[in-house]
Amino acid sequence: MLEFKNVTKQYHSGVFGTYITKAVDSVSFSIDANERIGLLGESGCGKSTIARLATKLLYPSKGNIVFNGNDINRMSAGEIKEYRRDVQIVFQNPQQIFNPRMKLYDTIAEPLRLYKLTKCPKEEKEKIDEYMSMFGLTDDILSRYPKEISGGQAQRIAIMRIIMLEPKLIIADEPTTMLDVSVQAQILRLLQNIMDVNKTALLFVSHDLDVIRAMCQKIIVMKDGRILEINTTEEVFEHPKDEYTKFLVGKTNLYNVQSVFTA
């Protein structure tokens, strides 16, 4: 469905732009419909850049990103709007992604209004209420401002806003690193349910091996802008090929809160 073909993103720095830093270096991979892929790497390895390239927040320096046969950077205005609807991103800092001057009701209604999914304010309200209860959120949140809610609530709303658009691919850029363990579990559960019900594809960007292992069928391991290994989750954990992957996988076994509740 979405394919990266030899994509490079480089930045120029220095007075004459003579220094070139490659954030992403000739990366190729593809995501099929209903596939869950994890993008694993430490900070600064270019994994967030990939998430932003795929959502057209950044433009590649070289290479093509193709969505269902269309290069996303050569689309017409109408196609872009369609693409923006099909591919959605969940960000890392849930409390910073909403307009601080907009009430949450308007923030939530925004996608509905942008894509004209509801005909009248009454229908809009009904739809929002329906989703709110589906996501376990209470009505009193709607009249608040973004800074008046907790991180877990904010991330739920962020995901809810995206689900309203029924995207074909969700890109999750470290969606739980800023959250507490118990909230992380809620958000991951939520994402899993959505994947199961809506048959959406997922690109899960994270540095947390345990989270990726639990969420994804396939793992892409990245370091310094390059892809080191693409394999199924089991293979990566049981028989890591690359030295770096071995190092990462080795670390997980070092601390392992083994509890009697695993069963």
């Binding site: 057209k56 927040l57 709007k81 923006r84 959605q88 960000f91 910073q96 307009n99 996608p111 942008l114």
Partner: peptide, 13 residues
């Protein structure tokens, strides 16, 4: 530079 502008772009504003 804030995240909410990126989020607004990503959702199709």
């Amino acid at each position: 530079n804030s995240d909410y502008i990126q989020a607004a772009q990503a959702i199709g504003n």
